[in-house]
Design a protein around this nucleic acid. Structure first.
Lengths: 282, 282
DNA sequence: GTGAGGCTTGACGCTACGTCAAGGTCAAGT
DNA sequence: ACTTGACCTTGACGTAGCGTCAAGCCTCAC
């Protein structure tokens, strides 16, 4: 029989671990002295402890180990199921770490390249769908776009109250940025979409605004810009480079979501979230 | 200005996270109402939050993020250093997860193959060096080995006390297992090696036992067996298969460390740790 | 008997939040 | 003005697997 210190040296684990496993009921000493509380371990117990350590190395939780280690026959199926689960987790972790590694390396390269990148805040996330009260136009300037929006806002209260309007959103369909002919949907996301599914507005210039359902996007690169909407495109190139370096390609019409403004009195303080649908490059 | 709920929806993070970051001083609302404690965030703050989320995605800790995000110029070098560190961590994690994945898959295959493997407790770890009072022989049986050991134990007390002796250890140099001609070192590990470096014993059969320093082994596959020492080899084949499946090859003389016994009165309860030096197969 | 080292339980710490719980605020509707 | 339901506040506990004290017994070789 060994006291805890020597047994811990045999097994190359800490005393704390042995006490902890004892506390969990996962691995208890063969004998405990009732008076002193001293734990005494038998050499043959090392086999069980090693089994526990092996299962832990495979990635099972102590709780899972407790479930499989005592059942002598049933454990094969149960263990197999756990291992299958662990395998997919491990595969996912490998993929994640590799992707992370790529991003880390591209950031290091950027810093070494010395270039101000100005795209520190490009976050990639999924984006839910939403109801979109919008009108599609080919506009030649921001002033024209603003006029359209103004008309839309004025026409809206006929059928819906202002609090139903969410954010001002532009979805840009022009594949390339051509300042004098931008094909875009302009409008507002809607807060209570189900109640407003069939709203349709006539605009003073003869156009129409209707509600359409915008599909969710699985991965959307987003980036926040503060300043004149006209300048918001300035960082687009840097963002595209960043996305390319991190292993993504653009795969759809980009959007601009106005978190603040555009307020006619302080247009330079508008806050716009640029959104670029992406997918991992194969 | 947004209240915390709407801001959390904008940023796709939880309210709890925003409050937590506020508490850490990492990301605080633009305004806090003194009376109610309500947090109010400005749209433009989303840029900073996104920067934090990006750095977190790269694997930096919140503390590290706090260090780099506020310094405007110095941050490049500091960030670079952190990223280099993170890169090597990530590389290591990838390697570990891949190795783990391989072990998981080999276990699944074993279970599916249905074979009782009997090598549930093969642990791979590093093994420190130790001082070894031993004599090298070619023995033809376990009885002969026992005789040698007995002689050694009797000769020992001349120069050292029994408490200096550690465990009985056999290092087997025969590359293949040939029962009638085993080239082995037999002896005891020593507990206070520095005081005993030059001990040399004459054995009654004319042989000598001396102290040598056994080198540490970086990775040692170990497995505990309970039973007659003669039977301890039974699992060796299973262990070798397991090691091969997990991506290791044997790379040195194996050892047997007697954790209990061999006690002449109860030899079948001996506890032996089989040790096989291994190295990752390239 | 005595000093050193070993053992006990208990408690806190770690990461980055998730999840209640008890109670104060806000804004729309009546 | 009042209600009601959604929203906000702080505070506390839980997570996984132990590491690291801290205060106080136990053991044992000299």
């Amino acid at each position: 029989m060994f006291r805890i210190g020597e047994f811990s040296r045999l097994a190359r684990v800490s005393c704390r671990l042995l006490r902890y496993y004892d506390q969990l009921g996962l691995f208890s000493p063969g004998t405990v002295d009732d008076e002193t509380g001293y734990r005494y371990y038998h050499a043959s117990q090392l086999a069980r402890l090693n089994r526990i350590l092996v299962l832990k190395e495979l990635g099972l939780s102590l709780e899972q180990i407790g479930e499989v280690i005592d059942e002598r026959d049933l454990s094969a199926d149960k263990l197999r199921a756990m291992l299958l689960e662990r395998r997919s987790e491990a595969e996912q972790r490998v993929a994640e770490e590799i992707a992370r590694l790529r991003r880390i390396e591209s950031r290091i390269d950027e810093i070494d390249g010395g270039g101000e990148i100005g795209a520190d805040d490009v976050v990639i996330r999924s984006e839910p769908g939403f109801a979109f009260l919008c009108t599609r136009r080919t506009v030649s300037s921001f002033d024209e776009a603003r006029a359209v929006v103004g008309a839309l806002v004025k026409a809206a209260p006929q059928k819906l109250s202002p609090r139903d309007l969410g954010r001002f959103v532009v979805i840009v369909h022009s594949p390339e940025f051509e300042p004098d002919a931008i094909d875009a949907e302009l409008g507002y996301s809607l807060v209570r979409p189900d109640a407003l599914a069939d709203v349709e507005l006539a605009l003073p210039d003869g156009g129409r605004a209707r509600v359409r359902q915008v599909e969710p996007v699985e991965s959307m690169a987003t980036c926040v810009r503060v300043g004149l909407p006209e300048d918001a495109h300035a960082g687009a190139l840097a963002i595209a480079r960043r996305l390319a370096a991190d292993g993504y390609t653009l795969c759809g019409p980009n959007r601009e979501v106005f978190l603040r403004g555009p307020d006619p009195r302080a247009p330079e303080q508008a806050v716009v979230e640029m959104q670029y649908p992406v997918r991992p490059r194969t």
